[in-house]
Each structure stands twice: as structure tokens, then as C-alpha cells.
Amino acid sequence: MANKFFFHKGGAEVVMLQERDYLLHSGVEVIDFSMQDERNLESPYESHFVSRKDYEGRSLSKLGLALSLIHSREAVSKLAALIDKMHPDLMHCHNVYHQITPSIISVAKSRGIPVVLTLHDFKPVCPVYLRLRAERPCSLCLDGDFRQVLMNRCAGGSIGASALLYAEAAIQRWLGSYEKVDRFLAPSRFMRESALHRFRSDQVALLYNGVGTAEIEVSTRDEGYVLYLGRLSREKGVETLLRAHEAAGTWDLVVAGTGPLARGLQMRYRNARFVGQSSGQALKATIGGASAIVVPSEWYENCPMSVLEAMAYGKPVVASRIGGIPELVVDGETGLLFEPGDAGELRTHVSRLMGDASLRARMGAAGRIRAERQFSIEKHNANLLQTYRSLVNA
């Protein structure tokens, strides 16, 4: 199981570690492959992990550093040694881009090992992985013309960074790295349809993320505040929510998370309560006390764990009608959907919920039932293991 982070950094790591725990408890031997980091969980294979690389904020003008983002000789060497030592039946890749690189796919395939890759983001069909151009949703690269990332300077307006990401995408396509994957796992129909622009239909399977409903108790607490939980960045739409809150003036808003916009948002929107990054029992208490959860994303979300966890806690969800979100939230039944970026519609929906406690309770209860029936971690894991077995048997 390969993922560049071996700690709870984001949604990809939550899914990966959930699957790892399930496999270990099912008697399956799991061989970890990741990047060294002081935040890592313990692993008997950590001596095989690649050295830590942090590209964020670094200049990639040096050729060697830039090339390591495309092809990691260290990852290839260390994974080859680990495979030759352990002889695994299958390799499952999660978020391996840049620090580990897709070069490891060829290592496994050269040894006759089937490869699974979960599409946590759009990287195989979008060099900048978010499908955003000038901070707006974009589909230009889906037809395979990766020059668009260069022409539009999609990497933060930088011609150098955009050129590097274009080169990475073009080289991986020339090497056929992703084409060697036996099975892509798409956590939403929207993601699967995006991937089918490049890959065969039988190569991409739908597998929604799962949430541990058995471990999450329904919360009947309703302390009168709306909760945003996530990264404070442009594509997450948090500023649209803050504008809606300012205009309404009748309900409380708690913002939990950090990100590049944190300082500016706190300065401009003083009526909201910013609580920073939260985890463990503090996070559970914050979710448990919320009246509703808002997911105001303005990019093509895949299968956000924030929505699944809100449903598991029995909380109604107000969310953008974009990407894979409408596959999770049943409009008018488990929550309310609004057009991305429409602060007025968002304000109307939240105000409606906050003015009707019985509606909140009904939608929250319906969301919990939907989470148990459609998105349980047990259902996810059973389908995952079935995928593994089909590939190994073949």
C-alpha cells in the first residue's frame, strides 16, 4: 500500500489508513511504502520509506530537483528491493504523486504484480490535479491536450511551475505509467466519468469512500451553530459562506480549519468564530454540537469525507451542487444543495434550516440512515477486497 504521507494529513490518508486497518484485522499482510516524516504512524517497513521531500514553496529551477518530481530513482530502487524481499500479491497506490511518483507503477508491473490506484483527485487527467483554471472549474485537459496547463499558466500563474507540470504529465503519458494500472477506483461517478476521458471503461471502477458508522454515535445535541470544517482556501468556497453569514446576521458560524486564507478571513469576517485546526475528541465535540454542516465547495469535489462524517453524526448538510457532492446529499431529504458561489441561495438554505429544529432533526436522521446503507466502511471494504481478489485470481 503506497501513499506519500503515513499520517492523517487529509482525506486520502483517512481512506488509506481505514483500508489498511481493515486489511490487517482481516488477516491480510500489508506492506507499507511511504515517505519518512516525524509525524508518521509506526510501521515495520519504515526503513524502506523514501527520504522526505517538501516541494511546497520551493524553487524547482534546479534540473535535478525538478526531475525528481517526475521520476524518483530513490522510490524505484527502494520499492524494487521491498518487493523482491516480500513478494506481495498486489500493490495499491493512493496519493503517490511528486514525492514517490507514478514511476513505482512500472516496478510492480515488471514483476507481474497487479496495480490498483485510487483516484483521490484528478491528477491523471489534470496536471494540476484540481481541475481549476484561474480559480474556476475547468475541463480543458480532459481530452488529453495537456498543453492547456502551459498556455493558461494553471500552476498559480507561474510559467515555470506550469511548464514543469506539463512536462510531468507528458512524460508520464509517454511512459504509459497510468495506462499500466489494472484498476482505478473512483470514489464518485463524477470522478469515474472524468477518468473515462482517458481510460477504458473496464479499467475504472466506482467505489465510494466509506465512513465508520459503527464507531460514530448519532449526536442529538444541537447547540445552535453552523459548522464549516475544512481547508481555508479559495476552491473550498469558505468566503462565500462567510459572506452569507454576514448578510444573514441571525445564526452563528464556527469555522474549523487552517489554510492560506486563514489570516485574511479572520481579519475581514469578525462575526464568525474561527477555532483553527481540530482533531480527536475536540473535533468530535465540535461536530456533535453543530446544528448543520456546510460544504460550500467551488471546485469539483470527489467524495468528501466531511459530508459522509456529517451524515454519520446525524447532521443535515448544506452543500454546493458540484462534482460528486450531489451523489451523497439528497436534496430536500438529507440536506439542501445550492449553486456554487451563490451566497444568497446559501444564506436562504441555512436560514431555513436554522429556523426549523424539526427539519434539522428529520434531515439529520435521514442522512444517518443513508450513510449506514450506502456509505458504510463495511460496504466499502467488502467491495475493495472483492476487487483485490478478482485481480489476483486473474
Rank of each mutant, 00 (worst) to 15 (best):
R347H: 01
G332M: 07
E339F: 08
I322F: 12
T334I: 06
L346T: 08
R347E: 15
T348L: 01
F338E: 02
S320H: 03
A343P: 00
E339L: 08
I325Q: 07
L346F: 02
T348G: 06
G332K: 08
G324C: 07
V329T: 10
E339T: 12
E345W: 00
E345T: 11
P326T: 05
V318F: 04
I325E: 01
G324I: 03
V317W: 13
R347Y: 01
G335C: 05
L336C: 11
I325L: 10
G335T: 03
G323D: 08
A343Q: 10
E339M: 07
F338T: 09
F338M: 09
A343K: 02
E339D: 05
A319L: 11
I325D: 09
G335Q: 03
L346P: 03
A319S: 07
F338N: 04
L346E: 12
P340K: 09
L328S: 10
L328E: 14
G323H: 13
L336T: 12
I325Y: 03
D342R: 06
G335I: 03
V329H: 03
R347G: 14
L337D: 05
G323S: 09
A343D: 15
T348M: 01
P326K: 04
G324L: 08
R347L: 06
D342I: 02
G324Q: 12
R347S: 15
V318S: 12
L336N: 10
S320P: 15
L346V: 06
E333T: 13
T334M: 11
E333S: 14
F338I: 09
V317Y: 09
